[in-house]
């Protein structure tokens, strides 16, 4: 089982999936030309990991902008986590958003809908768009 790490670019977020730590981090903004092509390796790696019936996975997401295609990909990812949670994997997700921007909280709530695993929306002070 391999970890996965993508540096953040102008149009794609940092992806840090660490098998040893059992964590997945998405951070930055997401508007790649082909969202599915970008997220497909992430799906594959996560699916593989979840198929091994791991005890847990902790997910941290901080996305300041997500375009429409990327939103669909994030929902697919959440769906996979939801399925795993229903299979007994301990899934915990923290969704960080800018506390000064109400609309980010609204977006997070939309992603949260129909999710039954622990999904915390954490408003925090924005430190900078790319850090």
């Amino acid at each position: 089982m391999e970890s996965l790490f993508f540096e953040a670019t102008k149009a794609t977020p940092l992806i840090d999936f660490n098998v040893n730590k059992k964590t997945l981090v998405l951070k930055g903004q997401s508007y790649p030309e082909n969202a599915f092509k970008f997220y497909d390796p992430v799906f594959l790696r996560i699916e593989n990991y979840l198929s091994t019936s791991p005890a847990e996975i902790r997910v941290d997401i901080r996305l300041s902008y997500v375009n429409t295609s990327s939103s669909k990909c994030i929902m697919m990812l959440l769906e996979k986590l939801e399925e795993a949670f229903k299979r007994g994997v301990n899934v915990q997700l923290n969704w960080y958003c800018d506390m000064e921007n109400e609309s980010e909280v609204e977006c997070a709530e939309e992603f949260q809908e129909d999710i039954s695993f622990p999904f915390k929306i954490i408003p925090e002070l924005e430190k900078g768009s790319n850090d």
Binding site: Y65, T68, S71, E104, E113
Partner: peptide, 18 residues
């Protein structure tokens, strides 16, 4: 339909925000 409705909403919020 569920995806579409939610993505529409997210997209609208983000466009307004931008």
């Amino acid at each position: 339909l569920t995806f579409t409705r939610r993505i529409f909403k997210i997209s609208d919020i983000q466009a307004g925000n931008l």
